[in-house]
Design a protein around this nucleic acid. Structure first.
Length: 226
DNA sequence: GCCAACGTTGGC
DNA sequence: GCCAACGTTGGC
C-alpha cells in the first residue's frame, strides 16, 4: 500500500480542498507512534536538528517507470512533474504514518530532492520545493484509486499531501550507488552522510535531510561521478 | 500488548 | 523476478 506514487492524473488541484486551516490534530492512538520527533525517529540526524526554526530539507521518492497498481499506472518522474501546469503537482498516495508526518512538517519554500526509485537507475534526479503545506489527500476517498483507504473518514482524514513545484534538474544525476559509497565511507570517517535516512530508514518514502547532508549532495553535482 | 503471519518497498 | 527489510494486522 504505502507506495509513494504520484499520478499525472492526480495533478495539483490546489484549491479543491476548501479551507486549508483544517489541519486535524486529533490522531487515533495507533497513529501517535509515528509522530515527527518521537523516539522512533530519533536516529536520523535530520530529525534531531529540526524544531529550532531551521528550515528543513527533504527527499521524496517516486517511481519514474511505468508500473500498474490495481490497474493504474503509478509512474511519476521528475519529467512528469516538470510537464505539469505551473510545474506543480500534489504529492498524493503516501500511506505510511512516518512519511505522512514528515509531509505535515513541511513548510512553504522548503526544498526537496526528487528521488527516482524502483527503476533501472535509482537516484536523485532533481530539486523541487514545497508550494502548499499539508492538506487532505483526496485519493484516500476515491474507490477506484490504488491508494483508496476505506478506513479513512471525510470528517477526519488520515492521509495528507503537499504540493510541490519543480525547481531544476540536478546538474548531473546522482545515483544511489554513489550516495551509498559516500554513506559507507562517512560511517567510518564521521562525514556528512553517515546517518542519511535513505540508508538508515530504508523504506521511508518521505524523509528529512540535514542541511549538511543536503549541501554535501549538492556539492557532488560539481564532481565527476565516483 | 505480544508476536507470527502477511504485505509492501525497492535494490539488485 | 528474487528476496531482505520492515511496517501492519489480527489472534490470542
Amino acid at each position: 500500500m504505502p507506495r509513494v506514487r504520484k499520478r499525472p492524473a492526480g495533478a495539483a488541484r490546489p484549491d479543491k480542498e476548501g479551507p486549508a486551516g483544517k489541519r486535524t490534530n486529533t490522531e487515533k492512538p495507533g497513529e501517535a507512534s509515528a509522530k515527527v520527533g518521537n523516539s522512533s525517529l530519533q536516529e536520523t540526524s535530520a530529525s534531531r536538528d529540526r524544531g529550532k526554526n531551521l528550515s528543513s530539507c527533504w527527499l521524496m521518492k517516486s517511481e519514474p517507470e511505468s508500473r500498474l497498481e490495481k490497474g493504474v499506472d503509478v509512474k511519476f518522474s521528475i519529467e512528469d512533474l516538470r510537464a505539469q501546469p505551473k510545474q506543480t503537482a500534489c504529492w498524493d498516495g503516501v500511506r505510511n504514518y512516518q512519511a505522512r508526518n514528515f509531509l505535515r512538517a513541511m513548510k512553504l519554500q522548503e526544498e526537496a530532492f526528487f528521488y527516482h526509485s524502483n527503476c533501472r537507475e535509482p537516484g536523485i534526479a532533481g530539486l523541487m520545493k514545497i508550494v502548499k503545506e499539508a492538506y487532505p489527500d483526496h485519493t484516500q476517498f476515491e474507490k477506484n484509486n490504488p491508494h483508496y483507504d476505506p478506513s479513512s473518514k471525510e470528517d477526519n482524514p488520515k492521509w495528507s499531501m503537499v504540493d510541490v513545484q519543480f525547481v531544476r534538474m540536478m546538474k548531473r544525476f546522482i545515483p544511489l550507488a554513489e550516495l551509498k559509497t559516500h554513506h559507507q565511507a562517512h560511517r567510518a570517517t564521521g562525514g556528512p552522510l553517515k546517518n542519511m535516512a535513505l540508508f538508515t530508514r530504508q523504506r521511508l518514502s518521505v524523509q528529512p535531510l540535514t542541511r549538511e547532508e543536503f549541501d554535501f549532495i549538492l556539492s557532488l553535482e560539481e564532481k565527476e561521478p565516483s
